[in-house]
């Protein structure tokens, strides 16, 4: 309509201007958490995968025993073989203290006094192409019973977990969007019922369907965007708190005053009111235009 100042349909009072933003704010709050969950799980997965995917752990039982080939101990033979193998980088024998610390949760703090045959543990990085699958067979020949654990299998599990979390978050976002659309639709129908007479009057005076639908859509867009903005703002302290909790696992930037949110989240959060506005506008347009079909 030419004059935007006049609220022809009285929508400021008709279209629930408290309930709709509050419900959309709640939806937006949930959406913010879901988006943050997706991004955080992806970041944590990347961090964990980076650490574990390239790592190798070699357990050598009876390390001081005679190696199957040569005259050295089994441990020395394995270390020597690892140092000479292509694709293996930085093989290091884990100290007895480190091994005891790793076993302490299961065997107690006095592992050393139990006189158990604890294997020697060698860590290394896999820098070669492909997977280190052939390594275990080679080491078995030198030192039978030697076990090789690759980080790749853990990384695959972490990747599967991340994908599942992201799928769940995407489902939550879809449900939130559908519920937000339903909320806008119900509010719009309520507004239509309250303003039926006014709509019939301006329809009779020659208003186009678009004139009426645009009025409702503008109001719904404003209320949805405002509600979503509030929801995103309310979510911020919660997200900072969660980021603080996750910081030890994600490796916070040293010297940072407060744990930072992923940069992608700083883009996603302002996008929430925009998405809510689009949902509000589209839903109101469809609802009003459908309803207007009942008029001649």
């Amino acid at each position: 309509m030419a004059n935007r100042r006049v609220d022809y349909l009285g929508l400021r009072s008709a279209l629930a201007d408290r309930l709709l933003p509050v419900l959309v704010a709640a939806m937006s709050f949930l959406a913010a958490l879901a988006v943050a969950g997706t991004l955080a799980s992806a970041a944590l997965a990347a961090h964990w995968q980076g650490d574990t995917q390239a790592s190798l752990t070699v357990q050598v039982p009876d390390p001081d025993g005679q190696a199957a080939t040569g005259s050295t101990t089994r441990l020395a033979a394995v270390l020597g073989a690892l140092q000479g193998m292509p694709g293996i980088a930085n093989p290091q024998l884990m100290s007895a203290d480190e091994v005891n610390r790793l076993l302490a949760p299961w065997l107690g703090s006095d592992v050393a006094q139990l006189a158990l045959p604890v294997p020697a543990v060698v860590t290394a990085d896999w820098a070669g192409p492909g997977s280190p699958d052939g390594l275990a067979a080679s080491l078995q020949k030198i030192s039978p019973g030697t076990l090789v654990a690759s980080g790749a299998s853990w990384a695959a599990r972490v990747a599967a977990l991340t994908t599942s979390l992201q799928a769940c978050a995407a489902a939550v976002l879809c449900i939130v969007a559908l519920v937000a659309g339903a909320v806008v639709s119900v509010a719009t129908r309520s507004g239509l019922a309250q303003r039926r007479e006014a709509i019939e009057i301006i329809h009779g005076l020659g208003a186009l369907d678009a004139d009426i639908a645009d009025r409702f859509a503008a109001r719904a867009t404003f209320l949805a965007a405002a509600g979503s903005g509030v929801g995103a703002l309310v979510a911020l302290p919660v997200l900072f708190w969660l980021a603080d909790l996750a910081a030890p696992f994600a490796g916070p930037a040293p010297g940072a005053a407060m744990p930072g949110l992923p940069p992608a989240l700083w883009i996603a959060l302002p996008a929430l009111p925009v998405i809510a506005a689009v949902i509000g506008w589209g839903t109101a347009q469809l609802t009003v235009r459908g309803w207007l079909r009942s008029l001649a």
Binding site: M1, A2, N3, Y8, I202, L205, G206
Partner: peptide
Amino acid sequence: ALPMRLAR
């Protein structure tokens, strides 16, 4: 004014 505003 309504009909005239609707007619832009």
